[in-house]
Amino acid sequence: MSTTTKAPSAKPALRQLQTLPEQIAERIFESIANGDYGPGDRIREEALSEQFEVSRGPVREALRILEKDAVVRILPNRGAHVTQLSIKEVADIFEIRRTLSGAMIARLSVDDAARLAAAIDADIRTLDALAQEPDGSSEYFQTSYRLSRTLREACSNERMGEILASLSRQTLRYTQLGLATPARRKESARNWRVMQKAMKAGNVQAAAEAAEKLIEDSKREAIKQLEARPSAIAG
């Protein structure tokens, strides 16, 4: 990972940025999501302190922020390491995320659902196009993640939105695995379109069911990919 990056500037990303440690946490998280760190890799405070040109205090606090979301684990005398979830842990987190995602959509009023359907139309069309591209995996995932964030931000229950954001972070690497093939991206795009059409029609229950299917399909494929890897942890 490059050591020339300056201290991160505040910009919209995967969470609303406020303090310097939150900004640093976001940048570390992006590095993990981009594969600069793999499961089990150590994240060294001193290297990050040099990279962001800050003292080790904000870096240490940033790592604690990521630990709350189970993105890293801080071990006594061993420092921070990227989490390596077992297959069972991945399945459990996806299950919670699926249930809460459905509940979040079901809470929408008919008018709010219609407004949200209009707000996400451009990104849905982007997904439809990217699903046809053999090399569209990265951009598809980024667009899908942005859509998920838009849905969370529309949730009237702020605490539910925060929990879903944390769960989304915890499953991010595994969601990417679940979108690895063109066939899966096409299936995902269809689910997004079904959900949007249901919201537009004011059928929030059907939209909630589509949201749950979206997460369930991602879980199924992620576990399939993990089980095919020799290093996968079963339990």
Rank of each mutant, 00 (worst) to 15 (best):
L20C: 06
L20N: 03
Q23W: 05
Q23K: 15
Q23D: 05
I24H: 05
E26G: 14
E26H: 09
R27C: 11
R27N: 13
I28F: 02
I28K: 03
I28R: 02
I32W: 04
A33W: 05
A33L: 15
N34W: 13
N34H: 13
G35L: 05
D36Y: 12
D36A: 13
D36F: 08
Y37K: 07
P39L: 03
P39I: 05
G40F: 04
G40L: 08
G40T: 10
G40P: 05
D41A: 12
D41M: 07
D41C: 09
R42G: 10
R42Y: 05
R42W: 04
R42D: 13
R44G: 04
R44T: 10
R44I: 12
E45K: 15
E45F: 08
E46N: 12
A47E: 13
A47K: 13
S49M: 05
S49A: 15
E50T: 12
Q51T: 12
F52E: 00
R56D: 11
G57A: 15
G57P: 09
V59H: 02
E61G: 07
E61V: 12
E61T: 15
E61Q: 15
A62H: 06
A62N: 03
L63I: 06
R64A: 11
R64L: 11
I65Q: 06
K68H: 13
D69A: 15
D69H: 11
D69V: 11
A70R: 15
A70K: 14
V71L: 06
V72H: 02
I74H: 06
P76K: 08
N77L: 15
N77T: 14
N77E: 14
N77D: 15
G79C: 08
A80K: 05
A80V: 08
H81N: 12
H81P: 08
V82C: 03
T83E: 13
T83N: 12
L85C: 07
I87F: 03
I87P: 05
I87G: 01
I87A: 08
K88Y: 10
E89F: 04
E89H: 07
E89N: 07
V90Y: 07
F94V: 01
E95V: 01
R98F: 00
T99W: 05
L100E: 06
A103D: 12
A103E: 14
M104P: 03
M104L: 13
I105G: 01
A106T: 04
R107Y: 05
L108C: 07
S109F: 04
S109V: 03
V110I: 14
D112T: 06
A114G: 09
A114R: 13
R115A: 11
R115T: 09
L116C: 01
L116R: 02
A117D: 00
A118H: 11
A118W: 06
I120V: 14
I120R: 00
D121A: 14
D121E: 15
A122I: 08
A122V: 09
D123S: 08
R125M: 07
T126C: 08
T126I: 08
T126V: 11
D128F: 01
D128S: 10
A129S: 11
L130T: 00
L130Q: 03
L130A: 02
Q132I: 09
